[in-house]
Write a protein that binds this DNA or RNA. Structure first.
Length: 145
DNA sequence: GCCAACGTTGGC
DNA sequence: GCCAACGTTGGC
């Protein structure tokens, strides 16, 4: 799950403990959100950072529900197509789990055998992407290195 | 700040 | 339904 740290970082999540992950306005990312189950773990990725990379881990504590910010004309996430009957956009609630001892930079993900098919590496501009169990383990090992 | 890669919109 | 124009994301 990507977030720009200047907007919301892993440290912000650590301070907030639980945060609604709103503002996803891409259908593929939304579908990936909807596939998440309570208790699932996710990587917290810092995008538009230097370096961009995986900063830590969070947990899904509430499964996908309507993102009503899409129905709020004053919200920066407003989408006039969204209605109460058809909210279109969803969000999940995530809880802080841990901050990695170091950021695992995108460049390292790209260079690590076993991660060449990781969706976040292949499809740069999708904010919520799936991670396989094997990829999960490799990234956690890199974080501890 | 640039720009590649996508996604979305809307005319036809 | 096609596709050109436009907007957004995010690495660099």
């Amino acid at each position: 799950m990507k977030s720009e740290p200047s907007t919301f970082s892993i440290d912000d999540l650590a301070a907030r403990r639980v945060e609604p992950w709103d503002g996803v306005r891409n259908y593929q990312a939304r579908n990936n959100l909807a596939a998440m189950r309570a208790g699932d773990l996710a990587f917290f990725y810092h995008s538009n950072a230097s370096p961009p990379g995986v900063a830590g881990i969070c947990r899904i504590v509430r499964e996908a529900y309507p993102d009503v910010s899409a129905q709020d004309p004053t919200s920066k996430y407003y989408d006039p197509k969204a209605t109460p009957a058809r909210p279109i956009w969803m969000l999940v609630d995530v809880a802080f789990v841990e901050t990695f001892p170091r950021i695992v930079p995108l460049g390292e993900l790209k260079a690590t055998p076993g991660l060449e098919d990781m969706v976040v590496v292949r499809r740069g501009r999708l904010s919520v992407t799936p991670v396989t169990d094997a990829e999960w383990d490799i990234v956690c090992e890199l974080a501890a290195r």
